[in-house]
Amino acid sequence: MEPLIPVILGASLCAGFIQGFSGFGSVLVALPILLTVLDVRAAVPLVSLVALSINVVMVLRLHGHIERGSMKMLLLGSVPGMAVGAWLLEGASDSLIKGLLGAIILAMVTQSVTTTKPRAHIGKGWTLAAGFLSGCIGPVTGANGPPVIAWAARQPWGRDALRATLTFYFLLTGIGIVGIQSAQGLVSFDILKLYALALPALLGGLWAGGAACGKVNERTFRAVVLTLLGIIGLTMVWQAGKAALGAL
């Protein structure tokens, strides 16, 4: 148990920095680190609480830049998606969902990198679909970001609007995710103690990430976002493939 505390602090620091810089990615960075010292049923609710705290802080900073019309459509799609996610949490495998989602993200990143067309506002149907997929995977993995991040990367927004809209969405859906996990008995007193331990490192990472973001231009910011998306997509496909091979 000796490495438990430094690993949790390191995961929290990294999660705060990534989220402070880009507006997303905290769960996808912290979860693999936490899984080296915790099992899934402990790591997922812990990282969900960490992400929720991050988003509270960031919404207070960025609330004036939120794209509210798009936010409403995302939430409208997420509500039925969360109902499906609650059912999946009862025991259904998420490896196929991860694999398909990772492939979709990689396709969208490829299109964003190779297309010569300017970014444009995406239709309501795609917005609803992104919200629904996000709602489905959130309760199961604690990481509801990839569908919405890929959707947001195609919007013609500046970095503040992108970070603010993603953060506010993740705050609202994070409340639902933690609520579902609590109802399933995953948010125990031991998890809350680990969460309290993680808070100082988390806040330090958020401050550092926000400071770093202010030093890069819009083009560099977009490149970093697309790179993170590519890593997320590849990781999800790799995890799904590993799970499939292990089941053979």
Rank of each mutant, 00 (worst) to 15 (best):
P6C: 09
A11Q: 05
G16T: 09
L28D: 04
L28M: 15
A30Q: 02
V40M: 14
V50W: 02
V50R: 00
L52Y: 08
N55S: 06
V59M: 01
R61M: 08
H63E: 10
L75Y: 02
G77Q: 03
S78K: 01
A83N: 00
L88A: 12
L89V: 10
K98Q: 15
L100G: 15
L100I: 13
L101G: 12
L101W: 05
A107L: 15
S112P: 01
V113Y: 11
V113F: 08
G123H: 07
W126R: 15
T127P: 02
F132W: 03
G145E: 15
V148L: 00
I149C: 11
R154I: 12
W157N: 02
D160W: 00
L162H: 04
A164L: 01
L166N: 13
F168W: 10
I180P: 03
S182W: 09
L186Q: 15
S188G: 05
L192T: 12
A196Y: 05
A201H: 02
L202V: 05
L203Q: 10
G204K: 00
W207G: 00
A212Y: 04
E218D: 15
E218Y: 01
L228D: 11
L229D: 09
G230V: 06
I231T: 10
V237L: 10
V237I: 13
V237D: 06
Q239W: 03
